[in-house]
């Protein structure tokens, strides 16, 4: 092989290496993002737990005979259920993150994606719990304007979480597809 041939071979290998590096780099970025998402979701879930406890205390201050009590009790129950859901989603995300190292590169990327999606849902879900607790607190303070706004944003955000869950299901399907290949 002459000089030109070697040169072309070097250029070719450089192209291949750049291709491999560029293909690998987003995967690392995704893994980093997954870890960050889990950290954020963890923090949100912890703060929600604290607020949920505070909300229970607040509920105890309201007379069980009052008309507001039953409504606030149901909102708190809804918040608790959502908190449990977000905790379960977070644990699932962590589980996926643990499996990343044990699967192939293509699947690793998809698992990371699922981790991010799960952590995103956990965060969004926990945020909705916070909104429910805001509703309880605003009601206790007789802040009518606040109650009206919060009621609307809870309804809207539930729709956003439903959309996020749809994306999550699609991500899961993508992984099944990747496995069958």
């Amino acid at each position: 092989m002459n000089r030109q041939g070697y040169l072309k071979l070097i250029v070719g290998f450089s192209l291949m290496l750049s291709g491999v590096v560029r293909a690998g780099s987003p995967n690392e970025k995704l893994q980093l993002k997954a870890n960050q998402s889990i950290k954020v979701a963890e923090e949100v879930v912890v703060s929600v737990r604290k607020r949920l406890d505070a909300s229970k205390k607040l509920l105890n201050q309201i007379s069980p005979q009052s008309s507001e009590y039953k409504q606030l009790e149901s909102v708190t129950a809804q918040a608790k259920k959502s908190w449990q859901e977000s905790l379960a989603t977070l644990n699932r995300a962590k589980k996926f993150a643990g499996r990343i190292s044990s699967v192939s590169k293509k699947l690793a990327k998809d698992f990371t994606l699922l981790t991010i999606t799960s952590a995103g849902i956990a965060t969004a879900n926990a945020k909705t719990v916070e909104m429910c607790l805001d509703y309880v607190e605003a009601s206790a303070k007789k802040n009518k304007k606040g109650v009206v706004i919060i009621k609307k944003v809870i309804a809207d955000s539930l729709q956003d979480i439903a959309d996020a869950k749809t994306n999550y299901e699609q991500a899961k399907k993508l992984i099944v597809k990747g496995k069958s290949k």
Binding site: G120, T123, E130, D134, D160, I161, Y168
Partner: peptide, 22 residues
């Protein structure tokens, strides 16, 4: 899908901020 999930989470985050302010 990741981007879609991110945008949904941001939208809920903004609503949570609004309920806090309200």
């Amino acid at each position: 899908i990741e981007q879609m999930s991110n945008i949904s989470a941001l939208a809920v985050q903004a609503k949570s901020e609004l309920s806090q302010a309200a």
